[in-house]
């Protein structure tokens, strides 16, 4: 709330809020921004009449017409490639890819083009486009519907990569994405689409890109996480009353809020990173590296991480054996306390 009020227009009136889910919050952010900015156009598979397979865009085609909320042919590469052209041409496209597992088809457009137009043209041609996709596991879905591919996009300079952790941050970050001059990859952790309700502003502003939030203050251990793992971390902490944990919710995965991570580790001297993506070359490794560079002498224990294993994401029966769970998170926190 604080961050939203900071970036919203100054007002003496208290911000009106409503208690809603992340699906509703994303829908509201799209709705309010489409009303504000006529250049915004939504394109994707099944987003119009069907309202998207998760119903995120429900009602928007009826409200804004089928020339602004467009059911496209079934072509992920086409959606993003055409989106790049729309963006350079002065529109603000919001591409929905039905599941992040299908974004691989788009990567040919995202990496060589979306991420690079600004640099290639010395800033004369830019791609203010948002690519939204549900990501992550935890919903017993079909194959290719559960992966966490954020690091592929973090490792693509020129992109902004965002991942909210609940309705309030989804709303504020999507507003920021829709005003960003740079291409934004907006990952929506699908396991918490409807699992959390929060107070979300009506007519509120954007959260800042590049800023983490300290979701919980603490003094013993820093837990850095993002997306659905924030909720999972909170569940783990319910069983760890004796440890004072500080949770840093990254929200922006690129550019990382370097200062927030370093400041928290300097304060606590211990670090645990939690992510769903596979361990090797996951974002935890980059966070470790930065802590080694800038806070090494503040560490009181070896850093640790709880991640997905270095294997392809399993089918639903074994999904819980793959994803970080509250037991593994709690064990990691206790381990850094004992080291």
């Amino acid at each position: 709330m604080t961050a939203i009020n900071q970036s919203a227009a100054p007002s003496t009136e208290p911000m009106k809020t409503e208690r809603i889910t992340m699906v509703q919050a994303i829908n509201r952010a799209l709705d309010e921004e489409m009303a504000r900015d006529p250049s915004i156009i939504l394109l994707g598979e099944d987003i119009g009449v069907d309202g998207g397979v998760f119903r995120v865009t429900q009602g928007l085609q009826a409200k804004y017409g089928n020339d602004r909320v467009v059911d496209t042919p079934l072509t992920e590469a086409g959606i993003v490639g055409v989106g790049i052209g729309l963006a350079i041409g002065g529109m603000r496209p919001v591409c929905e890819i039905q599941f992040s597992g299908f974004m691989n088809y788009c990567f040919e457009q995202i990496q060589p083009h979306a991420s690079r137009f600004r640099q290639r043209t010395c800033g004369s041609q830019t791609v203010p486009m948002v690519v939204r996709a549900p990501s992550g596991g935890g919903i017993r879905a079909l194959e290719h519907h559960s992966e966490s591919e954020e690091v592929m996009y973090v490792h693509t300079p020129g992109l902004v990569v965002l991942m909210p952790s609940g309705p309030r941050t989804a709303y504020g970050l999507l507003k920021a994405a829709l005003r960003s001059p740079d291409p934004v990859i907006f990952f929506e952790p699908k396991s918490i689409y409807r699992a959390i309700k929060e107070d979300v502003p009506i007519g509120g502003g954007a959260l800042p890109i590049g800023k983490a939030e300290v979701a919980q203050q603490g003094t013993d251990v820093t837990v850095v996480t993002w997306g659905a793992m924030l909720k999972r971390t909170r569940e783990a902490l319910a069983d760890l009353k004796d440890v004072s944990v500080e949770i840093v919710d990254l929200l922006t995965l690129n550019p990382l809020d370097h200062d927030a991570i370093i400041a928290s580790v300097k304060k606590t001297g211990r670090l645990v990173v939690i992510h769903e993506a596979p361990r090797t070359a996951g974002l935890a490794g980059e966070i470790y590296a930065r802590v080694c560079e800038d806070a090494f002498y503040h560490l009181r224990a070896p850093m640790t991480r709880v991640c997905g294993w270095d294997v392809p994401f399993p089918l639903l029966a074994r999904e819980a054996a793959y994803l970080p769970d509250k037991q593994r998170i709690a064990a990691a926190i206790l381990k850094v306390m004992q080291d």
Partner: peptide, 10 residues
Amino acid sequence: SSVVGELEEA
């Protein structure tokens, strides 16, 4: 939704 389980989370 197009996937099982999401309703359970909801």
